[in-house]
Amino acid sequence: MARLAAEDPLVRDEAILDDDDDDVDTDEEESESEDDSGEEFHAEPSKKAVYNKEGILEKLEDIAWPENVDWRHKLTIEHDQGEKIDVNDDLARELAFYTQALDGTRQAFEKLQSMKVRFLRPADYYAEMVKTDAHMHKIKGRLLSEKKKIEEAEERKKAREAKKRAKEVQAQKEKERAKQKKEQIESVKKWRKQRQQGGFAKGNDDGPDLNFEGDEGFKQSKKKRPGVSPGDRSGGLAKKGKQGKNRKSRDSKFGHGGRKGLKKQNTAETTNDFRGFNQMDKSQNKRRKMDGPRVRFAFFYAP
């Protein structure tokens, strides 16, 4: 079978070429043997392919332009690619095409320059282009958006790094602050000791009474605050505001603050206390209620 001769140096792209014309009819029986062996396909030139070199050269002669035709009719340049290019390596392939184009253009431009012909487009020559302005605008938009995307990504990266560094800086600062504090306390302690050793009695020293001994200095004092209810968080300020006479009397009667439950219940005293009731008001209210709207708004209904 032709396929087994795998000595062909040209190992081809399997997607493009992996079988031959004459394999078509033999493929059926081949597939049986193929099943177990996962062999790669190697391209084989089919043996019966036609190649009539004389005929081709004859045709070429027929259609070819005269030998001595001016180069300016053709504008063709040959370029040697050098070593073989790997087709599947996109970058290498495109680079090869680019260098071919660049090299060819350089040669052609040199030729044109030496011919002293006008071949470069002047800056003020406007004419129809292959791609429309709208399309070029689209391309520009895409380029810009791509650029923006890259910039944004970079910025994000920078911000992330800055954040990381800021954390470190913050930690450093805190450490320093704690150290400073410690030092200050230490220095004050030292100062006091020196004073004590210097012969000043504790009672009549004129220095500030700095109570930095241990942790007590920083704790809240647990002293009872006079005249302030224990739940009061305003620090007794609420009581100190000016209060009217009325307010005071009401407070004395109904109480102020604290639990409501006991205060609202009647006691023997309060049941007999009629200070808050006005007899006149009461009778008026009663009549108004009993009259109903017709009496109350009689003037509306008057003829």
Binding site: K74, L75, T76, I77, E78, H79, D80, Q81, Q100, A101, D103, G104, T105, A108, R121, A127, E128, M129, V130, K131, M136, K138, I139, R142, L143
Partner: peptide
């Protein structure tokens, strides 16, 4: 949109062939 170039419509091309 990946192909960003543009040229005059109808300008004569230079043609390069590999050897």
């Amino acid at each position: 949109l990946k192909l960003t170039g543009n040229h005059l419509k109808g300008s004569r091309p230079l043609i390069t062939f590999s050897t």
